[in-house]
């Protein structure tokens, strides 16, 4: 057992209800979880199990009903620029071009404080390059395909360089090939070639088990109605990960393990 550094984010007995009593929907119940600095944490679970709700609470957009949620020991009481969010529906500004969307946080938020105009533009250009959007800088979101919009949302998140990246099914709208390419890109952006101390912390929601296993250090499996912690699976696949990883036996074994954990519920959710 190696010595673990203090958790970056700590959830203790978190419960989330929607609507008033007595007709309240319990979306998340007694969720306790430590998120370590620099780790890539994936959350999987059947649809409707409360994944987005957990992410919104981490983002500070939804208050917890009871329990505590702390970052660096301090309670999370609202959004902060150090926690960047990539929304499930991208939330791109329709009146901004690709470059305008990506530079939005730098232009109007604290992420751009202390940066000159030229430095901001340079950062935007670099990130556009990174996600493969070169040539589309002046397009508007409505002129882009779903996959390209998703890249813009990813680029906007990355451009703000938040300490913690909260991502809600960020690659879900992409075709299989593009998704694989962007998974590799994502790991590179996150810093899988760097020591853990230089990596950012990522909380990554996905409904794809393969994706969770390929990307994450640990996979949190939630069960539904209400959302509870079912198991945390350690993914001890070597880094850097690449196509070899996808073909390896331990990769498929881990995927299989997680699949068995949620199979029953996934079926049940489908039948409903």
């Amino acid at each position: 057992m190696t010595l673990q550094p203090a958790p970056k984010i700590k959830l203790a007995h978190v419960r989330k209800e929607f609507g008033g009593t007595p007709a309240a929907i319990v979306a998340v119940e007694s969720l306790s979880l430590d998120i370590r600095p620099g780790e890539f944490l994936a959350i999987v679970g059947p649809s409707g199990c409360g994944k987005t709700t957990v992410l919104n609470m981490l983002a500070g957009l939804e208050p917890v009903t009871s329990g505590t949620m702390t970052m660096d020991g301090k309670a999370i009481s609202g959004p902060g620029a150090e926690r960047g969010v990539m929304f499930q529906d991208y939330a791109l500004f329709p009146w901004k071009t690709v470059a305008g969307n990506i530079g939005f946080g730098l232009e109007h938020g604290p992420a751009g404080h202390g940066l000159s105009r030229a430095e901001r533009d340079a950062r935007v250009a670099r990130v556009i390059d990174l996600v493969g959007l070169k040539g589309s800088e002046t397009k508007y979101p409505h002129q882009l395909s779903g996959g390209m919009r998703q890249r813009v949302a990813l680029a906007r998140l990355v451009a703000n360089e938040p300490e913690i990246l909260l991502m809600d099914e960020p690659l879900a709208a992409l075709d299989a090939q593009t998704r694989i390419i962007l998974q590799d890109e994502l790991l590179r952006i996150w810093g899988q070639d760097k020591p853990t101390s230089e990596r950012r912390t990522v909380v990554y929601i996905t409904h794809s088990i393969d994706e969770a296993v390929f990307l994450a250090d640990r996979v949190v499996v939630l069960s539904s109605h209400p959302g509870r912690l079912k198991r945390i699976v350690d993914v001890d696949l070597a880094r850097p990960r690449n196509d070899e990883t996808r073909k390896s036996r331990s990769f498929s074994e881990l995927s299989q393990t997680i699949w068995e954990l949620i199979r029953e519920e996934a079926y049940r959710a489908t039948m409903q």
């Binding site: 983002a59 500070g60 957009l61 959004p79 902060g80 620029a81 926690r83 960047g84 969010v85 929304f87 529906d89 939330a91 500004f93 939005f104 946080g105 109007h108 938020g109 604290p110 992420a111 703000n160």
Partner: peptide
């Protein structure tokens, strides 16, 4: 779209600026 305001909020854009931008 409510999420647009939330997106700006999570990027730390202050309330008065959010009105304008």
């Amino acid at each position: 779209d409510h999420n647009l305001m939330r997106a700006a909020y999570t990027m730390g854009v202050p309330p008065a600026t959010r009105m304008w931008v």
